[in-house]
């Protein structure tokens, strides 16, 4: 008869793994790292010279003032958007400016660019210049940034539907890159108005 191997007591193993579990629970955090990515302009004086060269029709100026209202200058006109209406009105203004669907001479010029997967595409030269007052709250600033991002995202989605028949988040990385090149995010964050 074969000798019976004595069973090992594994009760303590559960205790050890419980300890490890609590250790990891305490020292770690579920990351909710999400946000709006932006690129700051390079620290050089050349950039400022270039900015001066941009023609008036290609700039949309957005000034967020101390009362957290927004003053938009585009098409040679000025509008004031109150804080409550930022979420509803700003996006459409930005979209109209960036897309320029009717080739309005007061809205940004376009230039033809060869893009892989897309062919020749008319890329807008429009730049949104975002300035703020010293007393603007960060919350409003992000609200404005969010609306601008939404405008760009919707334009990209429309272009993606047009060219590839799908929305941005379902495209291949290469197709995504093409769309991103066709509709760039040109938001210039100048430091402050005064």
């Amino acid at each position: 008869m074969a000798r019976k191997v004595p069973s090992i007591n594994t009760g303590a193993m559960a205790d050890i793994s419980f300890l490890l579990l609590t250790f990891f629970l305490l020292t770690s955090s579920i990351t909710n790292e999400q946000g709006i990515p932006r690129l700051l302009p390079k620290p050089s004086t050349e950039q400022q010279k270039q900015e001066e060269d941009i023609r008036q029709r290609n700039i949309m100026t957005i000034l967020v003032n101390r009362n957290n209202d927004v003053l938009v200058t585009a098409k040679g006109e000025q509008y004031v958007i109150e804080k409550k209406k930022i979420a509803t009105e700003l996006k459409d203004k930005a979209k109209e400016f960036l897309a320029n669907p009717k080739n309005d001479p007061n809205l940004p010029e376009k230039f033809v660019k060869q893009i892989d997967n897309l062919g020749a595409y008319e890329v807008s030269r429009g730049v949104i210049s975002l300035t703020n007052d010293n007393n603007t709250t960060f919350e409003t600033y992000i609200l404005v940034q969010n609306e601008l991002q939404k405008a760009v995202n919707e334009l990209r989605d429309e272009a993606a539907l047009n060219y590839f028949g799908q929305k941005m988040d379902k495209l291949d990385p290469e197709e995504k890159k093409a769309i991103q090149e066709a509709i760039p995010i040109n938001i210039s964050e100048a430091s402050s108005a005064n």
């Binding site: 700051l40 302009p41 007393n135 992000i142 969010n146 430091s191 402050s192």
Partner: peptide, 24 residues
């Protein structure tokens, strides 16, 4: 207030730290 954010942004820019992400 944005005046403090601007100070920080200016410093990041001066030091060539350009890739930023506003946490939301």
């Amino acid at each position: 207030k944005m005046r403090y954010v601007n100070i920080l942004k200016q410093e990041l820019r001066q030091n060539n730290a350009l890739k930023i992400n506003y946490s939301t």
